[in-house]
Design a protein around this nucleic acid. Sequence first.
RNA 1: GCUGCUAUGGCUCAGUCGGUAGAGCGCGUCCUUGGUAAGGACGAGGUCACCAGUUCAAAUCUGGUUAGCAGCUCCA
Length: 634
Amino acid sequence: MVKIDLKGQVKEFENGVTAAEVAKSIGMGLYKSACAARINGEVCDLRTPIDQDCTLEILTFDSEEGKHAYWHTTSHIMAQAVMRLYPGTKFSIGPSIDNGFYYDFDMEKPLSTEDLPAIEAEMKKIVKENLPLERFELSADEAKSLMEGQPYKEELIDEHAGQGENISFYRQGDFTDLCAGPHLMTTGCVKAVKLTAITGAYWRGDAKNKMLTRVYGVSFPKQSMLDEHLQMLEEAKKRDHRKLGKELGLFMLRDEGPGFPFFLPRGMVLKNTLIDYWREVHKKYGYVEVSTPVILSQKLWERSGHWDHYKDNMYTTVIDDEDFAIKPMNCPGGMLVYQSEPHSYRDLPLRVGELGLVHRHELSGALHGLFRVRCFTQDDAHIFMTQEQLKDELKNVVRLFDEVYSVFGLSYKIELSTMPEDHIGTVEQWEHNQEILKEAITEMGKEYEINEGDGAFYGPKLDFHLADSLGRTWQCGTVQLDSQLPERFELEYVGEDGQKHRPVMLHRVVLGSIERFIGVITEHFAGKFPLWLSPVQAVVLPISERHHQYALALQEKLEKAGFRVECDIRNEKIGYKIREAQLQRTPYMLVVGDKESEEGTVSVRHRQDGDLGSMTLEAFVERAQAEVDSREIK
RNA sequence: GCUGCUAUGGCUCAGUCGGUAGAGCGCGUCCUUGGUAAGGACGAGGUCACCAGUUCAAAUCUGGUUAGCAGCUCCA
């Protein structure tokens, strides 16, 4: 007998009982919705036999792990359907992902979207057949003979065999796949499936390898959940910053400058307001500001190491027969600023900010609205300090990040990116620096994930990722520890001992790029920017022509009070003007007619709260000013 | 850059079988002077992304180029 602890309730079972059988003993409802199990904290298959005392949790679709098992099984069902419809297909891998699953196929004739309904129909048949999934293990040799004619599988088997492991398989009817699991008990559990996209993807994610056909899909235990999911995607599209950017007149992109955004008057107000805030908060945190040139000699880039490691992404030019490059980063300019005068330990930490306009030749296929452009403003800073000051300064930077992100109500995910293949500096230096980053962030009580090999070529970094409307995350903030550039530029400060020492340096951006950040907050707020950021904060709406004079006077008074105000004196009815102001997400609409002009009041409507009744202009100004000052998010 | 898809007035989109373009919104003029999400009439806007080819004839078929979209790769 084994004792199984089910969330605090201990029950006894026969030795060798499976997690699925335990679920069944609790209730058929749980058994039917079970996707995977967590035994002693480890996620595993429902088929796993239990032969010693343990804790057990049954994972349903409601849990992350349950969803993953569910989607993973669905990807096998899809592969099985493809195998039935296109017998010559070579299979590679088909995992679950955050919002569904995919499977990569190597096909003689790649699939097109027209083929998806047929695959979906075949999948429904497989679901109806309610095939049980069976798990088994083979030695590497046996595995290879089973997967004969499947070169991608053979490659994977060789890899596992190299580590001396047995290879696990899952079989469902006429389909068997190399797989670690966990998986559902039968194909019949998958109730609602939608294949969502078909694209290309490189084998093993390497651009040098063959491009395979990738089919994406998502599935749910209920049709209504699928409908809801698709509905949610539709809603998310409405928040897309490219769509809103056009509708709200924030920015535009033209064929004449792919990846080079144009900021329109309203977008420019947003950008400048953001920059004003940035300056305010950086002043508070003890930063000074500089500006370094956009074009600098190629020799400088050779010295900094950018030329060797980044030249494919740099735009270049020739001036008076000398080679120059347009800056893709601000650091070398920042080094020259530091070098321009001697420094004492008393000056450190020296925090030098720069809103630097950088240009990078990004691959055409990588461009994406304001999220990925070829020309953007980094809210950069270089911080020079002593080794002893490093950890405190790291924390200081993270505190600043926290303050800024909380003003926008943004939550983030931290990644620690470690040494890439292409790097400068010694392994010891890298490991030492990575350790300091870890310590600083751990001491602040923050969680992080490791992003192996994704550091900058000059040092490890902490990346702060923010999510867009579809939940895709974009790196915005980053703190990078650099012990290379101070070395290459022979930076110095005079210590207490009167000797010259080398400072350590941090690169960091909070917003990341102003452009990307505007994209993120546009989606985050769905265009309803907080009052302090709104390009137009209020619009005065006269009911008819005889109220124009009063309305224009109000506009002038509000502008004098420091607000961004428009007045809609078009020959339209009030309902029409309100509709337009609502669609523009204008925070406040000030309706004025006979009543207001006689009483000297305004009738205030808020884009979310609706009619707020009439009040004096002074009362409105007071209210709005308080909202601006608090940077309240409504 | 790679794979697939797409490109028609300022915007969103129709356009069948190849026979030289259509709607709504927006814009302009006029009527209407109104009370919290679209009042009405009339009008002006398009070498159908670009370059070739096939054809008596191309928005439509073919090839290429450019740009966009989804994903991959790369990245703030």
